[in-house]
Nucleic acid binder design. Structure first.
Lengths: 201, 201
DNA sequence: AAGATGAATATTAACTTGATTATTCATTAT
DNA sequence: ATAATGAATAATCAAGTTAATATTCATCTT
């Protein structure tokens, strides 16, 4: 028996390539199946339907994003710097995912209308990660934050332009290049960090 | 001769009402004309075409927004507080404009594709206003900002979720209420202000 | 049984074409 | 002249039809 996960992986990869290039709607199940050398009917043994394939791709995207952030958090280094690194990593990861993906907005649309649980969970995760950095800074004495939860919520909100896909794509359309976005990520993070840094005597 | 500006104002107001309720596309020139007791043909003596009406409405919207900000800037008060007031005013003005406007996104779409100069000019203005607040703070000794222009750009970028209409509407769809947005506006501004405040000895 | 398929059916999307709407212009009214 | 209009034309939209695609299922293969 061939590893079921391998097959699922092939389907998701083929689907993502086509969704990125030609769009979620224009991509047919037959095409995805052909890329994996199988019949369209057989796809349904691995995924409930096309919609689920789209959501699954997004789930994986979010999970990779989380891994990147966790790596940064677990790294040695000052919490002050970590926030900027996270913001920058978000821009870089999303830019690399969405460059050369002219039709990706269709998948985003699909997720926005059919994957609100996914999005909610992602928001929670972001909030959790930023809380973690704040707590670390609090303990190490780098930060002085009176209400960690509220501050994390604020910073998570400010991070939206750097990773929330529709906003991110919107900004790229609105004349912001990858370089501007990187710069803004670092500067916004920096300004907020300055706001919570413990004053040196 | 009836004041030409009065007529233009009537057209713009009628159009906005219909665009907000029924959408830019569903609204016909005949309907707008009827609201102003004139023929559809006559509209073309006041506006080049329907597209221009949409852009003109947006221009006025931006101008009102600018007036609100100028008022805040010219007010007596500490520059530290003004930034938060501006962010909050942006949320409130945009929320009041777009509540009860179920179809406004169509107009936004139109402006995004056909009004890039308008949008660019608006961005510049925002940058200018924030620079002004920073300079005031610098002079009064409230702030210590090494590069005013860059910092203004950063803060202007961070303000996007609070007034850039497509992002604003996106966030409202994404579970953010008017109250959350108000809270976030104040908190984000506050955190950035803390980052540029001159340390007390 | 598990893995896969082709053919059958249900959904969607693409393509007409008839109807609406945007826009122009010659003409009328003031 | 300026202001406005109705009728004519051009562009766009919408309803209905046809073609493609998604999804199911009975069947075949291993």
């Amino acid at each position: 028996m061939v590893d079921k996960e391998k097959v699922r992986g092939c389907i998701l990869l083929s689907a993502l390539k086509r969704f990125s290039h030609y769009g979620f709607n224009k991509t047919t199940m037959a095409e995805i199946a052909k890329d994996c050398s199988m019949s369209a009917a057989n796809l349904y043994r691995y995924f409930k339907d096309k919609a689920e394939i789209g959501l699954c791709i997004t789930k994986n995207h979010f999970e990779r994003e989380h891994k990147i952030i966790i790596d940064i958090i677990e790294r040695k280094g000052s919490p002050s710097k970590k926030l900027g690194q996270v913001f920058l990593a978000l821009v870089n990861y999303n830019a690399s995912e969405f460059d050369n993906s002219p039709a990706i907005m269709e998948l985003v649309d699909h997720v926005c209308t059919n994957g609100s649980e996914l999005i909610d969970a992602h928001r929670e995760k972001m909030h959790f990660f930023i809380s973690k950095i704040l707590k670390e800074g609090q303990q190490s004495g780098d930060f002085r934050v009176s209400n960690i939860d509220e501050t994390a919520k604020t910073i998570a909100f400010a991070s939206i332009p750097f990773h929330a896909t529709p906003v991110f794509l919107l900004l790229k359309c609105g004349g912001h290049t990858r370089e501007t976005m990187q710069e803004m990520a670092l500067r916004v993070a920096d300004l907020m960090v300055k706001g919570i840094k413990k004053k040196k005597k």
